[in-house]
Every structure is written in structure tokens, then in C-alpha cells.
């Protein structure tokens, strides 16, 4: 089994960015051309890419004996996959493939970088970790992806909002779903991200408590809790306080910006036991 997986992995590693590139091109075609013919091509290729991606991760899992999430390269690859999954979920919910052109190219770029990293010889083997620790990392990665997708929809909302307010009715206006739909996509993705982040924090704290490794005072933990609070407030404002329009979108974008800044802050200036190598 192992030698076979070994031989398939390079093929899958190369195939992934190609499939994401094809999918991005198909979504671009959907955006540029309005006819329904070929509208399914993008979603179909993206689904195939996701399946290949899952096969790739499973193969690596078999090979390495744990979920492959031990390096920046792994982190990027998992982020790409989870962004694709979140996007496909939102697309299916809202029934429009026209926004794929703004999400899938990002996934493609992430995968290209990940594949490029993958060409570097792997480092020392990671020790076997408990399953729920793997769940912690997986849910954290998926929550970041969901927040990224939410941010894309937030930005699209703001762009369309400005376009309509200023009486400009360009191709972008024609292709985008309604503002209400974009707001829904933004909130749905943020909601999903918040649930996953809650799981990640809970599992992480549980792991910390049971193993005693690391510290509750870790800056990454507190910054992540801060991000959680901002997104929780954004969702509360939308669902309970009735915030609508740009205000609600800004709230979720503040959450995403804080998330990005916190990662940069931790990686560059603060010491954390949460580090990918």
C-alpha cells in the first residue's frame, strides 16, 4: 500500500493546482458570459478538485500516520480545501455560481504556494497526536477559511452597495446576486466560522488542561478569543439588533482584519507555542 501511495502523491500534488486553475477559469467564464450553457462546469471541476484534495490528504494521512497539518505547507493546503468546502456550501445554499470568480482564484493561489512548499523535502517526523488534537487544528483551519470566505462576500457586498448607490450598473452589478444574498452569504460563512472557532478553542483549551503543555496566557489564545468576541458581536448585531447594510458587514470585516493582524502579530512579534514549522 505505502509504496503505491508514495508514487501517487506527486501526481496528486501537481494535479491539485491544475484542477483549481481550471475551476477558476470556468468560474471566470461564468462571470463573463451570461448564458446558462456551461454554468455547471465551474462547480463540477471544483467538486472534482475537492475530491482529489481529500484523496491527497487521506493518502498523506496514511503515509504519515496522522492528519497532515504539521507545516505551513500543510496549513495552506488545508485552508485551500476548507475554503473550497465553505464556498461550495454557500454556493449551494444561495444557488448562484457568479461569485466563484472572487473565491476560487484565491484557493488556487493558496494551493500553488502550498504545492511549491511541498516540493521542499519534509522536515523531521511529527510525533503522533491524539485525535481530538487533530480535530482542534482542523476546526481552527476551517474556521479561518470560513472567515475568509465571509470577508470576500463582505467586500463584494460593499462594492455592489457603492455601485448601486452611485447609479453605476456595470457588468459587476449584473453578475452579482442581490445585496441581501451577499449579506446572507457573509453572515452564513461568518456563523459557520464562529461555530468552528468555538470548537477549536474548546478542544484546544481541553487539550491544554489535560496535557499541561503550553500556557493559558499564550497571546495567540487571547487574540483568538478576541476574534471570537468580535464575530460573536457581528452575528448578534445582525440577528438580534437588526443591523443591516454596510454596518453589519463592517462588523464582520473588523473581525477578519483582527484575525489577520493577530496572526501577523503572533508570528512576527510575540512568542507562542502555537507555531507551524
Amino acid at each position: 500500500m505505502t509504496p503505491r501511495i508514495d508514487s501517487v502523491l506527486p501526481l496528486l500534488t501537481t494535479l491539485l493546482p491544475v484542477l483549481y486553475a481550471l475551476s477558476a477559469a470556468a468560474y471566470a467564464r461564468i462571470y463573463v458570459r451570461e448564458e446558462s450553457t456551461g454554468a455547471r462546469l465551474g462547480p463540477v471541476i471544483l467538486r472534482i478538485a475537492v475530491l482529489v484534495h481529500v484523496a491527497y490528504l487521506v493518502s498523506r494521512g496514511f503515509l504519515e500516520g496522522h492528519f497532515p497539518l504539521a507545516s505551513v505547507y500543510d496549513f495552506l493546503s488545508a485552508t485551500g480545501l476548507s475554503m473550497a468546502l465553505v464556498y461550495l456550501y454557500v454556493e449551494a445554499k444561495e444557488g448562484t455560481p457568479n461569485t466563484g470568480v472572487f473565491v476560487v482564484p484565491i484557493i488556487f493561489l493558496i494551493q500553488v504556494v502550498s504545492t511549491a512548499y511541498g516540493l521542499i523535502p519534509p522536515g523531521p517526523k511529527v510525533p503522533i497526536r491524539p485525535f481530538w488534537f487533530e480535530l482542534h487544528t482542523m476546526s481552527a483551519v476551517m474556521s479561518y477559511s470560513a472567515f475568509s470566505v465571509s470577508a470576500v462576500y463582505g467586500i463584494l457586498f460593499l462594492a455592489l452597495y457603492r455601485e448601486i448607490k452611485s447609479n453605476r450598473f456595470s457588468l459587476f452589478y449584473r453578475r452579482m446576486p442581490s445585496l441581501e444574498t451577499l449579506a446572507q452569504m457573509n453572515i452564513r460563512a461568518a456563523g459557520g466560522g464562529l461555530v468552528l472557532l468555538t470548537c477549536a478553542i474548546g478542544l484546544g483549551l481541553g487539550w491544554l488542561h489535560s496535557t499541561g503543555q503550553g500556557t493559558f496566557g499564550d497571546p495567540k489564545i487571547w487574540l483568538t478569543v478576541g476574534v471570537w468576541c468580535i464575530f460573536a458581536f457581528a452575528l448578534l448585531a445582525y440577528h438580534r439588533l437588526g443591523w443591516r447594510g454596510p454596518l453589519a458587514i463592517y462588523a464582520s470585516l473588523v473581525g477578519f482584519t483582527t484575525l489577520l493582524l493577530s496572526r501577523v502579530l503572533v508570528d512576527l512579534f510575540l512568542h507562542s507555542f502555537h507555531e507551524f514549522r
Binding site: L160, I164, Y173, M176, P177, S178, L179, E180, T181, Q184
Partner: peptide
């Protein structure tokens, strides 16, 4: 058309 673009349904 514009109303639908803003409000959805």
C-alpha cells in the same frame, strides 16, 4: 430589477 438586486425577493 434594481429593487430585486438590493432586496433579493
Amino acid at each position: 430589477n434594481v429593487a430585486a438586486k438590493v432586496l433579493g425577493h
